[in-house]
């Protein structure tokens, strides 16, 4: 079956290239996460420096005894046939709505957040998206590697 072998070889080549490409993407998104996290933390530190360390601290994070609230971000699984792993995760953000128990997390710390705190939270929000992206890339990478393994095994058998 020469045509079949040709096809498999071609596919393997493409999969290898895709794998390398995904590795690059993964590394890039990791570096971006690192940068964003760093600047976010720096902004948080700046806020604490300006406002005193008591205003922004872990003591203000709700505990088990606090009122319940719903998550503002939810992960959703979507079918996507253009992807190799055929599944893609995406982030769903909800708007703040007190009646439906969607609370603005910034208000735990201060009702009038300074601009540095806002920037920090923006950075962290972007970071969350990047983490999701890198997780998607990772899934793809695993799927590609799985395909490569299977095709290779068959190549040997052929």
């Amino acid at each position: 079956m020469p045509s079949k072998k040709e096809e498999i070889g071609n596919l393997l080549d493409l999969l290898y290239l895709e794998m390398l490409d995904l590795i690059e993407q993964y590394a890039t998104s990791r570096v971006n996460i690192e940068k964003l996290m760093n600047s976010g933390q720096l902004m948080l530190a700046k806020t604490r420096y300006l406002k005193g360390s008591q205003t922004i601290s872990s003591a203000q994070i709700p505990t088990e005894n606090s009122n319940t609230f719903n998550a503002l971000c939810v992960l959703e699984e979507q079918k996507n046939d253009t992807k190799i792993s055929s599944v893609e995760y995406s982030l769903m953000r909800r708007n703040v709505d007190k009646d439906k128990e969607f609370v603005e997390p910034m208000h735990w710390f201060t009702l009038l957040p300074p601009s540095s705190l806002r920037t920090a939270s923006d950075h962290f929000k972007k970071c969350l998206e990047l983490v999701l992206e890198s997780a998607n890339v990772q899934r793809e990478l695993l799927a590609v590697m799985d395909h490569i393994d299977r095709l290779k095994q068959h190549c040997k058998a052929l």
């Binding site: 079949k4 096809e7 596919l11 493409l14 895709e18 253009t82 190799i84 395909h147």
Partner: peptide
Amino acid sequence: IDLKLLRRV
């Protein structure tokens, strides 16, 4: 990548 081909193969 021709995904259809990949799945078929």
